[in-house]
Design a protein around this nucleic acid. Structure first.
Length: 423
DNA sequence: TCTGGGGTCCTAGGACCC
DNA sequence: TCTGGGGTCCTAGGACCC
């Protein structure tokens, strides 16, 4: 039988913070999104207090004070480094691994023996070598493995590893009958409501739903989900991630921004980040979209949102050319008199650098100059820290930069910030 | 005062072509 | 008066994921 494992870190961001601040153990802790906006990770203690995923932090002030909830700004540099350590350890357990997200990985285990014990070994190794707690779900399709992982997390009797493949069908169905259909990977709020209208409430209902009806009511994607619930693997492991088809960089501002000049600085900063990502995957941009918007939550203030795509007939990865195009777009959509809350850029029309169409009029010398300048820029910023060299237009004061009230140190990636044992 | 960011896929509809 | 059929490409919007 096909065997796929899904390994998922528990409360990943909070677990990362606890590694270096053991005093957080046993206490309600949350990690906030950029700008200290929403809750994006919660310790078990915080979940037990009823703190919801995605809840705006400013609405939780009272409950936070009452229960002494500790809120930390997100520290993605730290999380990304710990994630790569976890993933490297997991790769020892299977020749085939798909890194699905910062805290999740699928592993192909087909043909191996003692899968439940193998899952326990993964847990033990990661706990010992990195210090992060994980749970493991094992089943015959990715969708079922996700569900098994969910069970491993919720039901303590599985000790963190749930293997559907070694359960009799009848027991498995009894288990699925107890789980809401909305827990299934790919079933979101809208679909769950639609399923409910059809009388489908549990995972077992969905598993037994006729494929034709599901396809007609929803889409081929949902039809595949039902097949996966029945143990037919439709989704393969994606071992190497294909290059991105779009690259987005957008941020909310730390405070409302009114002046075009500030928006220009932000757009240059975001375009710079996006261009770095573009070059890292050896691609060129065929266009760049810029958008700005006011704060939709402030209903009494005048609202405005607009975006525009600026085509780049000569595909490029040069930060300067991308910035020029983005600024050109920004000036077209900017209207004075609004308090802007967010801006962003999206690189589109992405092609591989190697497949750049050549024309008679290519300025080969300029292209070579651009390539070596960008390579030098990337080298300096990679080795000496991001932002060491930047375009002047990005600004130095950055009044629009995001808030990070309570950010921890980058313990594992910056010499200046390593953990101090005694001082 | 304060509500994240970055992706993918699918579908429908319009423009355009032969 | 009569006004096809089929294909492609692009875009916008919706739904979902972490």
């Amino acid at each position: 039988m096909r065997a796929i494992a899904l390994v998922d870190c528990n409360n990943f961001y909070v677990s990362c913070e606890r590694l270096f601040q053991p005093g957080l153990e046993g206490r309600p802790v949350v990690v906030l999104s950029n700008n200290d906006g929403c809750v994006v990770s919660r310790s078990q203690e915080a979940k037990d207090l009823g703190i919801k995923m995605g809840a705006p932090w400013f609405q939780l002030q009272d409950v936070a004070r009452r229960h002494g909830i500790i809120a930390l700004s997100s520290n993605y540099t730290l999380y990304a480094d710990l994630s790569s350590r976890v993933m490297r350890l997991l790769s020892r357990f299977s020749p085939q691994q798909e890194i699905y997200s910062i805290d999740e990985s699928f592993l192909e285990l087909t043909g191996m023996a003692d899968l439940t014990r193998c899952g326990q070994a993964m847990r033990g190794t990661i706990r010992q070598c990195v210090g992060i707690p994980v749970c493991v779900g094992i089943a015959s399709s990715k969708t079922l493995a996700k569900l098994a992982n969910h069970v491993a997390k919720k039901q303590p009797q599985y000790a963190g590893v749930c293997n559907f493949n070694e359960m009799p069908e009848r027991d498995l169905d009894a288990l699925l009958a107890e789980i809401e259909a909305g827990e299934v990977w790919g079933v979101g709020r809208r679909t769950a409501a639609g399923l409910q209208d059809m009388g489908i409430t549990s995972v077992l209902d969905l598993k037994r739903a006729p494929a034709k009806r599901i396809r007609a009511g929803f889409s081929v994607v949902m039809e595949r989900t039902v097949a996966e619930l029945n143990g037919t693997a439709c989704l393969e492991l994606d071992e190497l991630s294909p290059p991105r088809q779009q690259i987005i960089c957008s941020r909310s501002f730390g405070m409302p921004v009114r002046a075009l000049q500030d928006l220009e600085q932000a757009v240059i900063a975001y375009t710079t980040r996006a261009a770095e990502k573009l070059r890292r995957q050896h691609s060129l941009a065929g266009g760049i979209q810029v958008y700005v918007r006011t704060n939709p939550h402030k209903e009494k203030e005048p609202q405005y949102q607009q975006g525009i795509t600026v085509p780049l007939p000569d595909p490029t990865d040069d930060t300067r050319l991308l910035c020029r195009a983005a600024l050109d777009g920004l000036r077209q959509i900017y209207r004075s008199g609004y308090a802007y809350q967010k801006a962003g850029v999206m690189i589109t029309g992405i092609i591989a650098a190697a497949s750049r169409p050549r024309t008679l009029f290519d300025d080969v010398q300029a292209q070579q100059k651009s390539r070596s300048l960008m390579a030098t820029l990337d080298h300096i910023n990679r080795s000496m820290g991001s932002g060491t060299v930047q375009l002047l237009g990005e600004g130095v004061r950055k009044g629009w930069a995001m808030r990070r009230g309570n950010v921890s140190r980058r313990y594992t990636t910056e010499w200046d910030e390593v953990a101090v044992v005694l001082s």
